[in-house]
């Protein structure tokens, strides 16, 4: 599938923001005393910027962005519509949390309750994003049980690293030090299992079932219907990254997993470096996640390409 930059930026950036909210909801009740307002302003500001920027970027993918509001109407059947509704609901909850925590410094219970609602809605939004892909039968690399866990664990890991970043920037220890590295490792394991599962997929759909001619013998494309690449070939048949998939997977693992883990360990061993290491870990890991998301699209193959290339899937 063609890796559209607007969709890659949206899923990665909104994953960061929603991941931060999920962790704030979980760990705010564990914090001793009222939570730091400056940390709240920086972390919520960052989360809002990531989610808002991501949503804006996603509208760049649309042919008619001025009609985007219509996408809130079909939540009964469409995961894309559900994602839109949940994204707006969680934005409202995050705005209320921003009001309650850094702006008004409301009572702790009020902050924690708002954070819990925002965290739940955030988790639901990330799951809905993943379900858009999970529900597409023609794309076997997406239509499997590992897609949703990948999106959720990567959002949590990115959120953990960026919450630590906000903590380092404001001099507040919010998350216990082990949380972000454990979430990064968890995401790495889940993504590795995703790759293991999807690399071994054997599709029941072949050019034989696509044309119905399989019973007559091997089917080979002879003449294409048109001389230049059409929409289907450009959208479903993007192959550039696939040639370099193994190398890009190593780059994604190196930047998204190894680099942040090494930085956190180095920071733990040399206290003078700790702050800069944490400040560096989140952006480096995010570059890794961007590569991972690029691969998520570029490695995915659509059965419609079978009509053009018998071995496409």
């Amino acid at each position: 599938m063609h890796p559209a930059l607007s969709v890659i930026l949206f899923t990665v950036a909104s994953g960061i923001g929603y991941g931060m909210l999920m962790l704030l909801a979980l760990f705010l009740p564990l914090a001793a005393g009222p939570a730091d307002r400056l940390f709240g302003a920086v972390s919520l500001g960052l989360a809002l910027a990531c989610i808002g920027g991501g949503l804006l970027s996603s509208t760049a993918h649309l042919g008619r962005p001025e009609r985007a509001w219509r996408a809130f109407t079909q939540w009964r059947s469409s995961w894309l519509s559900r994602e839109g509704v949940l994204a707006v609901l969680s934005l409202v909850a995050i705005a209320l949390l921003t009001l309650a925590w850094p702006i008004l410094a409301a009572p702790v219970e009020c902050i924690e309750m708002t954070a819990a609602i925002a965290g739940l809605l955030s988790a639901a939004t990330v799951a809905a994003t993943a379900m858009i892909y999970r529900s597409l039968k023609p794309i076997a690399r997406w239509h499997n049980r590992w897609t949703v866990p990948c999106y959720l664990t990567i959002a949590l890991a990115s959120g953990g690293l960026w919450l630590d970043w906000a903590g380092a920037a404001t001099g507040v220890d919010f998350l216990p030090r082990a949380v972000a590295p454990i979430l990064v490792l968890l995401a790495a394991v889940v993504k590795a299992l995703y790759w293991r599962h999807t690399d071994g997929l054997k599709s029941a759909t072949t050019i034989g079932t696509a044309t119905g001619l399989g019973a007559l013998g091997q089917v080979r494309p002879l003449d294409p219907p048109h001389t230049a690449a059409n929409y289907i070939m450009k959208e479903m048949g993007f192959r550039i990254a696939r040639k370099h998939a193994a190398k890009l997977r190593r780059i994604a693992g190196g930047l998204g997993v190894l680099a942040p883990l090494l930085l956190v360990i180095a920071g733990g061993m040399v206290p003078a470096l700790d702050r800069s290491a944490v400040l560096l870990a989140a952006p480096v890991a995010t570059i890794g996640v961007l590569v991972e998301r690029w691969l998520f699209f570029a490695e995915a193959q659509h059965v419609a390409m079978l009509y053009y290339k018998a071995d496409a899937v």
């Binding site: 649309l62 008619r64 929409y231």
Partner: peptide, 27 residues
């Protein structure tokens, strides 16, 4: 008149039957 051109329907079609119109911005 309602299509926003998100292209998701073309992804959901295994037969490659839907084509995006770049000039009009709809499927």
């Amino acid at each position: 008149d309602v299509c926003i051109g998100c292209k998701l329907c073309s992804w959901a079609c295994p037969y490659g039957a839907r084509e995006f119109d770049e000039d009009v911005g709809v499927m």
